[in-house]
Simulated scan of single mutants.
Amino acid sequence: MNRPILDKNLDSQLFTEFYYLKEELIQFCRDYNLPTSGGKIELTNRIQQYLKDGSVLKTNKKQRTIEVNQTFSLATVILPHMRYSEKHRAFFKQYLGPTFSFNVPFQRWLKENSGKTFQDAIDAYPILLNIKKKQGAAIDKQFEYNTYIRAFFQDNKGKSLEDAIKCWRYKKSLQGHNKYEKSDCNVLK
């Protein structure tokens, strides 16, 4: 079955069976006056609800905490929804070295540990890096392409990125899940 056109007449269940780019989801929301904010999962849920019964899911607007005091110390408390700036990056680089980055595991740790201090964050950073090295970085659900490509290369040593992309394009055109399967490589023959 060819991927159906994303419009208001699409069945909500059928919509979930196909892959759509985030840009396509945003365009749908614009076309039908739905909120365009949020990540791919939030947009997908909003569109599915709209297609199901015409209702609009409310957006989750997170209130960002603005750091008024721009000087930091090891005792600075991590606030909920804190937005990290270049000044924060410079502070952490002071203690963690020039290779410091706000990588995903560290960002997640900061988000889950409001109330702790920057010292706690500095102590946690090398532990998080070590876990990331041993286990590989986890890929969040909305990054289906990245997950697919990683699984492709784990199963196909020596294949090219071009091969992986051909398989991905084939897979996302099909109805159903977008997880890598060995049979996807048939498209390379």
Rank of each mutant, 00 (worst) to 15 (best):
L96V: 00
P105M: 13
E162M: 13
K166R: 14
E144M: 09
S55K: 09
I122E: 06
R30E: 12
K111H: 13
E42T: 15
I66A: 08
L79R: 04
P105C: 13
N45A: 03
V77E: 06
F92G: 12
S73L: 01
E144Y: 10
D123C: 12
K141W: 13
Q107N: 07
F106R: 05
F102N: 13
N146Q: 15
K132N: 02
Q154C: 04
E144V: 08
W109Q: 04
Q119W: 03
A138G: 08
E24V: 08
G158F: 12
Q107A: 06
D163L: 06
K52R: 09
Y145N: 01
T65N: 14
G54H: 07
N45C: 00
H88P: 12
Y148E: 01
A164T: 07
I26M: 05
A138R: 07
L129H: 02
K132Y: 08
V77L: 00
K52D: 02
E24I: 08
H88G: 09
K133Y: 13
L96H: 04
N113M: 02
T59S: 11
D53F: 02
D120R: 02
P126D: 09
A75P: 07
K22S: 10
L128V: 01
I131G: 03
K134A: 15
E42A: 15
F152P: 02
F143C: 06
K133Q: 14
S101I: 00
R150I: 05
D163Y: 11
T59Q: 12
R89Q: 02
K133E: 15
N156A: 03
L43M: 02
K40Y: 06
Q154S: 05
